[in-house]
Simulated scan of single mutants.
Amino acid sequence: MLTMADTKGPPTPTSAPDLDILGDQVRIHPGGYIEPPAKKDGSHERNLVENMARFRKSPFDFLREVSLYVSGTGWRAYDDVVGQPIFYSGFTDQMKSAVLSTPILQEKISELTERRLSVEEAHGLLRSEDKEYTQKRALRMAAIEKSLREVADELTNKMICKLESKGFIRGAYYLCTQLLTRAYHQGIHVSSEEVLRLRSVAEEAAKKKQSIVFLPCHRSHVDYVSLQLICYRIGLALPTVVAGDNLNFPLVGQFLQHAGAMYIRRSFGDDTLYTTLVQSYIDTLLKNGYNFECFIEGGRSRTGKLLSPKFGILRFILDALLSGRVEDAIICPVSTQYDKVIETE
């Protein structure tokens, strides 16, 4: 569980401790640390992301922090990650190739090709009594398949996340933390016990090459940003996040795609090729043990309230498991609590 503090609350002291996750231990830097009060169940919450140094107040501290992210010092390097390898050159091409070569996509392309040939034969464009019928049909089949593969290639390129650069994700983490801690002055608070449990489960999942499917509630755009920040901070492989293609606009769209967003249409309609392509991508992610994230409500409430669940993406996950294409996956519900959601204003 993670909590966003009220935007009107008092800012945390700049000497507030940071949190190191080492194996199965939580290390709190002692300077200025005050043990948070225990809840009824004995658990504690700690601030995982605190306010960063401000250039006007402390230019030297600000420059020191920036240099730590640029050089990738300590946990910022994002090298020792729990989960399958991500953020390396060639990741996108490898993922794209895997998606386009899935058996279900190949079968669908063959099926659509046969349908198209049947339509053309019904309209007299291909005549069985023609002496060169077999040759013409084979050439037409090759042309249709090529066209469908080009469409699938273009759709895949727009859809898949492009986790290529660790330098980019370090910069993205720093930028998002700066923005988030200005909007929510008291930062992101997480349960230490839940963090340790999640890392323990993630380590077992990584050994078995299984995916963790995060299912957060969706009250704000901050939901997916905060979960990515937490995974980065505690050293988990970032999940691929299902996002509506309405977010895929210049600059922001590319930024999110390189930070883990996969774009899908709001409605698939009768486009069976696109539906199969989405299924192929989800199959590829789950089969190879990449973490995955989708919102159980489908979209933001825009009022800060919970919405009724929708099962669109969950159907794809369930189909991958029940068909046997994917052996298993781990479901991780995520509750994000806000004293106040900034978008409601």
Rank of each mutant, 00 (worst) to 15 (best):
M4S: 02
K8L: 11
P11L: 10
S15E: 13
D18C: 10
D20A: 11
G23N: 13
H29V: 10
A38S: 07
V49K: 09
A53E: 14
A53M: 11
R54V: 12
E65G: 00
S67K: 14
Y69E: 08
V70C: 06
S71T: 11
S71P: 00
A77P: 02
Y88C: 06
A98V: 08
S110V: 06
R116W: 00
R116A: 15
R116S: 13
E121W: 03
A122K: 12
D130G: 05
K136T: 03
R140N: 03
R149L: 13
R149V: 04
E150Y: 07
S165M: 06
Y173G: 01
L175I: 10
R182I: 09
R182V: 06
Y184W: 08
S191H: 09
S192K: 01
S192I: 13
E193M: 06
R197Y: 05
L198N: 00
R199V: 05
E204S: 12
S211M: 10
R219W: 03
S220A: 14
H221N: 14
Y224M: 13
V225T: 15
L227R: 00
A237R: 12
P239W: 11
F249A: 06
H258G: 06
Y263W: 13
T272L: 15
V278I: 11
N288I: 06
E293D: 05
G304T: 04
L307Y: 02
K310Y: 04
F311P: 01
D319W: 02
C332L: 05
Q337I: 15
